[in-house]
């Protein structure tokens, strides 16, 4: 038994250390979550506005609960609006303020205005938060697209780059037609992930269970083979062990240079690529700054 514990000491210590790390991180995250104090009593408590009846009642409830939990953890409002109505005429009314709008931007006008009108923001009205407006109506689009838009404000606006926004939108659009609930859940979790750690939920490396089985099996086999070596003792004599004085006497030792040849080769160098771009920031009709980006499904 003593020998067994001695042999397994490495694994037992590793498990103990990982357990400690796990609980320390969990403890730290819990404390951080409590640091945010809600400073906005103007905005409504509702976060999920399913005007298109895409979600069931229980799904809406589950999303509301998830959003409440995530909002407290990151200190940002997460709002979801699901529409199924043409927005062309609604948006065109704002063209004199915002300039000419393309069909994909109608939903942007709606999103910005929605956020502004309800005065969302975790820290204050028109403060930190975001809204995703997903419009299932396809009549606005010459291509038959259903557009959506993620409008960001405050800390969310300054945190999210174009590529981060695109990632959130793409994650939604990848599955919204098959499973809208899961798609909207990914929106909430992605906002939380990016705000808490700078990684999206899908960027987080989740080790699949089969990988753990394979790695464990490989380690066990290596352990087995490593301990299977039966031979005890290796050669400990050197070539000079029995040589008088430990050294050979060199009577001739010449390294005569004969000739030298040099070959040349031209190296092909590729020119470097360009850098990334920034997020598009604009001011809404209500006069508040928003970041954001959209997509379609």
């Amino acid at each position: 038994m003593k020998k067994y514990i001695k042999s397994m000491a490495f694994f037992l210590i590793a498990i103990a250390v990982l357990l400690i790390i796990y609980f320390v991180i969990r403890g730290m995250k819990g404390v951080v979550g409590e640091d945010y104090v809600r400073g906005n009593s103007t905005a409504p408590a509702q976060r999920v506005y399913d005007y298109a009846d895409v979600l069931t009642g229980s799904e809406e409830e589950k999303l509301e609960k998830l959003i409440a939990k995530r909002e407290a953890q990151i200190g940002c409002d997460i709002v979801l609006v699901i529409l199924n109505e043409p927005l062309a005429s609604y948006a065109k009314a704002y063209e004199d303020v915002l300039g000419s709008l393309s069909e994909s931007e109608y939903v942007m006008v709606y999103a910005d205005n929605f956020y502004d009108e309800y005065a969302f923001g975790y820290n204050k009205p028109h403060g930190d938060g975001c809204v995703l407006v997903d419009n299932w109506d396809r009549s606005d689009s010459v291509y038959g697209y259903a557009y959506n838009w993620l409008s960001t404000s405050g800390r969310v606006e300054s945190r999210f780059s174009t590529s981060m926004i695109n990632h959130v939108i793409d994650d939604v659009n990848d599955r919204v037609n098959d499973d809208p609930y899961e798609a909207y859940k990914s929106y909430v979790n992605n906002i939380y992930s990016y705000m808490s750690s700078g990684k999206s939920a899908s960027d987080r490396v989740v080790i699949p269970f089969y990988a753990i089985i394979i790695i464990s099996a490989v380690v066990a086999v290596i352990y087995l083979i490593g301990n299977l070596t039966k031979n005890v003792g290796t050669r400990t004599t050197a070539s000079n062990t029995y040589v008088n004085g430990g050294k050979a006497k060199m009577t001739v030792m010449t390294d005569q240079f004969i000739r030298r040849s040099t070959t040349k080769r031209h190296i092909q160098r590729s020119s470097g690529g360009g850098g990334g771009g920034g997020g598009g920031h604009h001011t809404s009709a209500g006069g508040h700054s928003h970041g954001g980006g959209g997509g379609h499904h």
Partner: peptide, 22 residues
């Protein structure tokens, strides 16, 4: 942008005396 490879050729001569004990 040029890589050079230089090969030098040598003629090597060795003679050694070794006394082994036991």
């Amino acid at each position: 942008d040029t890589e050079y490879t230089e090969t030098s050729y040598y003629h090597i001569n060795r003679s050694m005396e070794v006394d082994f004990t036991r």
